[in-house]
């Protein structure tokens, strides 16, 4: 566990460092954004002094690093609000979107993968495979755009195709505004998860324990459920862990498409406006989010795997 935490810290540090130096290498000074493009050199210089941009690069890096380590992410250049406050407004939305999407697609994928494996090489199996592979291949932002077109233009009023409704103001509307984005965001997850489970269950036929189960005359249902399915959950969980990261990346696309004010949207907006403190904060928190998701899946994996579980308990 300690080792993992250390690895996480190192990764975060690398991300932060890269982002910092890339920003300083980028053309144009952030000072222009504050005073405007037609400001005099003297004005620019004074703002740069104020922001500490006149100091040597390494000093700036050290100051920034120290600040962030104490939890101070600075203020947004555009809104003037603290970055942490902006992030706290956006984070729950991305989190909720991802969770809803997972809760919708993962159970479906588990059922589909299991049924397909049990009825291998039947039309049902083929259907699951084709739908699964299509769901992986469809570019999410394109499908999302088509859905916006469909529900926005041809089926107006059925489901909202854009925007966000807060839970407090309208619970039903809130859920309805989540339907399309959550559907598109997790679609690929469905295919990958179902495929992994299916393949793993089919391959479990070759394992010694399934063979022994057959040799002892266990009913087919018992073998499918308790041996093949239960053991196939392990590789499937590992894959879902990787998918959560993919979904976070996907949320950048989906939030922009459906106009949801989440982290992904914040990131794109802050980059467009060259609001660097906000961009750094958003990148870092997405990276933390990503690493935490991996950690949670690792713990889940351990819970499913007694061997790993004991190692966790032991240390």
């Amino acid at each position: 566990m300690l080792r993992r935490a250390a690895a996480m810290a190192v990764v975060l540090l690398i991300v932060l460092t890269l982002v910092f130096f890339l920003m300083r290498m980028a053309p144009g000074s952030p000072a222009y954004l504050i005073v405007g493009a037609d400001a005099s050199p003297a004005e620019i210089a004074s703002v740069e002094r104020e922001l500490g941009l006149d100091k040597p690069l390494m000093v700036q890096y050290a100051t920034e690093l120290g600040r962030i380590l104490t939890g101070d992410l600075g203020e947004s250049i555009f809104t003037g609000d603290t970055v942490s406050h902006e992030l706290m407004l956006r984070l729950p939305i991305t989190l909720e979107l991802t969770m809803v999407s997972l809760l919708f697609w993962i159970p479906l994928a588990l059922i589909a993968g299991r049924v397909a494996a049990a009825r291998r090489d039947t039309p049902l199996d083929a259907t699951v495979r084709i739908i699964g592979n299509l769901s992986i291949a469809v570019p999410s932002f394109w499908l999302g755009a088509l859905l916006v077109l469909l529900f926005g233009l041809y089926l107006p009023g059925v489901l909202p195709s854009s925007g966000w409704v807060g839970l407090a103001e309208d619970p039903m509307g809130h859920l309805r505004s989540l339907v399309l984005p959550a559907f598109v965001l997790g679609l690929g997850t469905f295919g990958v998860t179902a495929n992994t489970l299916r393949v793993s269950m089919i391959e479990s036929v070759r394992t010694d324990y399934v063979r022994f189960g057959h040799a002892m005359g266990l009913p087919e249902r018992r073998i499918n459920r308790s041996l093949a399915f239960r053991n196939s959950l392990l590789p499937t969980t590992a894959v879902v862990g990787q998918l959560v990261g993919v979904m976070l990346s996907g949320s950048v696309l989906i939030e922009n498409l459906f106009n949801l004010p989440g982290m992904g949207r914040l990131l794109v907006d802050s980059i467009r406006r060259q609001d660097y403190p906000l961009a750094v904060g958003a990148t870092l928190s997405l990276a933390v989010f990503f690493l935490l998701a991996n950690l949670i899946v690792d713990i889940l994996y351990a819970a499913l795997n007694p061997r790993v579980r004991q190692k966790f308990a032991g240390t």
Binding site: A7, M8, V10, V11, I14, V15, L18, V19, L22, M23, M25, A26, P27, G245, V246, L248, S249, V252, L267, V268, I271, R272, A279, T283, L286, A287, F290, L291, N294
Partner: peptide
């Protein structure tokens, strides 16, 4: 390689491209 795999690369790519912009470096 493990370290590379733990970075959300699409997000990272977006940030890098967004910051360094159209210009070549």
């Amino acid at each position: 390689f493990e370290a590379i795999q733990t970075v959300p690369l699409f997000v990272f790519a977006m940030v890098v491209l967004g910051i360094t912009g159209v210009s070549s470096f």
